[in-house]
Amino acid sequence: MARVTLKGNEIQTSGTLPKVGTKAPDFKLTTTELNTKSLSDFLGSKVVLNIFPSVDTGTCAQSVRQFNQEAAELENTKVLCISRDLPFALGRFCGAEGLNNVTSLSDYKDGCFGKDYGLDFTTGPLEALHSRCVIVLDENGTVKYTEQVSEITEEPNYKAALEALLDD
């Protein structure tokens, strides 16, 4: 399990992120149109998994905005913004903000994504939500980069994640 903090107070996650060099676990997540997407739907593209507790918080919303801006410049890359928010909330936020360079996906149905990726909070006030993480995958679904943000109120290292897309 990873130990992270929320405003300096320690909280724990359900496990550890997938290791660099391993195949990412498959998933089934819900789109804002209530369709199901799996990892296999994105094979052939590089993928950035931007994972966060809720789009209704300032830091989470900023990560979606920032990756949306960065994604516009990326070739053969998909940015997936993943949380346990309802698909309606994700759709409302992206629609209101005019964000169309990212794909919002919800793990609201069964939480299997968070469990399989080892990133659910298991203690603290955000228990059962996803911790703030970034995972970068190559075109074959192999993990190239991971970041478990140590203080949940802080943004991820966008630059490091984007640079991992360039490493071949």
Results as ranks from 00 to 15, higher is better:
M1I: 12
R3P: 05
T5K: 12
T5W: 06
N9H: 13
E10H: 10
S14V: 07
G15E: 02
T16M: 14
T16I: 14
L17D: 03
P18C: 05
P18D: 00
K19E: 13
K19C: 09
G21A: 09
T22C: 10
T22M: 11
K23Y: 06
A24W: 02
D26K: 08
F27D: 00
K28G: 08
L29N: 01
L29P: 07
L29F: 02
T30E: 13
T31K: 04
L34K: 14
L34N: 13
T36N: 10
K37R: 13
K37S: 03
L39E: 02
L39S: 06
L43R: 15
G44V: 09
K46Y: 00
V47E: 02
N50V: 04
I51S: 03
S54K: 04
S54Y: 03
D56C: 11
T57Q: 02
G58C: 10
A61I: 09
Q62I: 15
Q62N: 14
S63E: 15
V64T: 10
V64G: 01
R65F: 05
Q66A: 13
F67E: 05
F67C: 06
E70S: 13
E70C: 11
N76E: 13
K78W: 04
V79E: 05
L80Y: 02
C81P: 00
C81H: 01
I82A: 01
D85F: 04
A89E: 06
G95V: 08
A96W: 09
A96H: 13
E97M: 12
L99N: 02
N100I: 08
N101D: 11
V102H: 00
V102T: 15
T103H: 03
L105N: 00
Y108S: 09
D110P: 11
G111Q: 07
F113P: 00
G114V: 03
G114H: 01
Y117R: 09
Y117H: 08
P125G: 12
E127G: 10
E127M: 15
L129E: 01
H130E: 06
H130D: 09
H130W: 00
R132M: 01
C133G: 03
C133A: 15
C133W: 04
V134F: 05
D138W: 07
N140C: 10
T142Y: 07
V143R: 05
K144M: 10
Y145D: 06
V149L: 06
I152D: 03
I152L: 12
I152M: 11
T153R: 13
E155C: 11
E155I: 05
N157G: 08
Y158L: 02
A161E: 05
E163N: 14
E163A: 12
A164D: 00
A164K: 01
L165E: 05
D167G: 12
